[in-house]
Design a protein around this nucleic acid. Structure first.
Lengths: 198, 198
DNA sequence: TAAGATATTGACCGAACGTTCAGTATAGAA
DNA sequence: TTCTATACTGAACGTTCGGTCAATATCTTA
């Protein structure tokens, strides 16, 4: 690869990294192009040379995030045998790789806002569906193995999604160990409940 | 009261209602003053005659919401005897009175955003603390009565808060019956868990 | 009814933001 | 070295938005 191509790709990566960090920290709308370029040191025009638009940049980050997440999950999934273990692993990856990932905060802005492009809307709907499908699979697995009680799987998938989204928001300003603790407790509650009658 | 005063108060209420509806539906930033005035039929200047600023309007809505919520809760609290029943009642009120209340969506925007006034920041921190305190009380009550297993109360309060926040987001585009169902299931899971081993 | 207080209007302002573009710098090809 | 495609710059543009204000309408009071 050319020296120029390498440098170009580095710049692209630099912009993407800075943007990801800012989107995650401040949300989509609250992050300005100017801030992103200020964080990279390169110029506004250069950002638009590498990315079609702000939406396009965000979309790129979503895709990247999605690919990374699934890859990392597949890497570690086999370490967990039971569905219960998988659930804790799921929570752990959520916190470790992903605490405050772009989706949680920014996707919501897109869903509600009226300035979204069809392309983004479709992609987001797709991602939420994937999430719910993932949750359903995880839960169904536990039910099949007898770990979890028979129940409304779709409903539980939704509840789990809600829990994860809420946890991400509540933990946004917490440090990693605190967040991990809260996530673990949440999953523990989700799995075992707090009811006394056993 | 004067005819003029009555009309003025009606206008004020009309603006507040429209603003609440829009904030709840679209979030804080995404809702423009122009939209609010368009929804009320009155003018921009008139809004600024009745409210100090956009932030002031939002703050007013938060206070109003808070007062209403607590009043309604106190009204119905005695109907529930056990902590378990209270928890369901809590969820029901959340959905019925409050599905997508201003706090959930907009408070998050304020917390992260850098354009917040100290006054708003303090008020929001106060409200979150109140929420957690409320949750703690509810949970502690259940533990004292033997309904809930002994556990980390502060942590559980945080988890419950996360659950409620997440549920509100997930249910934003659902109808009331669907939302109620999801909330009930979530509380049921929170209370009893999904684990098989009893 | 006249004067004054109160309520309402909408054009306007300045700042912020996403986006564009004419121009410059640089690395590889010829 | 010269030429060209690629990488990059930053001033400028159009739009949006929160907020202001002088003018006007409406109601109360004396």
């Amino acid at each position: 690869m050319n020296k120029k191509q390498i440098q170009s790709e580095q710049t692209r990566k630099k912009i993407a990294d800075a943007a990801r960090h800012l989107f995650v920290q401040k949300g989509y709308k609250a992050t300005s192009i100017e801030e992103i370029t200020a964080a990279t040191g390169s110029s506004k025009g250069n950002l638009y040379y590498h990315f079609k638009s702000k939406e396009g940049l965000f979309l790129y980050l979503l895709d990247e995030w999605d690919r990374d997440w699934i890859a990392k999950w597949r890497e570690k999934e086999h370490l967990h045998t039971t569905a219960t273990e998988k659930m804790y692993g799921f929570a752990e990856q959520m916190v470790r790789e992903d605490l405050n990932h772009p989706l949680t905060k920014a996707a919501d802005e897109f869903f509600i806002g009226d300035d979204k492009t069809c392309e983004v809307e479709d992609r987001l709907a797709e991602m939420v569906a994937e999430h719910l499908s993932f949750n359903r699979m995880l839960i169904q697995q536990g039910i099949d193995s007898g770990e979890f009680r028979e129940n409304d799987v779709q409903g539980l998938a939704l509840v789990l999604e809600a829990l994860v989204i809420g946890l991400s928001q509540v933990s946004r300003r917490a440090n990693l160990t605190q967040a991990l603790e809260t996530y673990r407790l949440a999953i523990q509650v989700f799995l075992h409940g707090i009811s006394q009658n056993k």
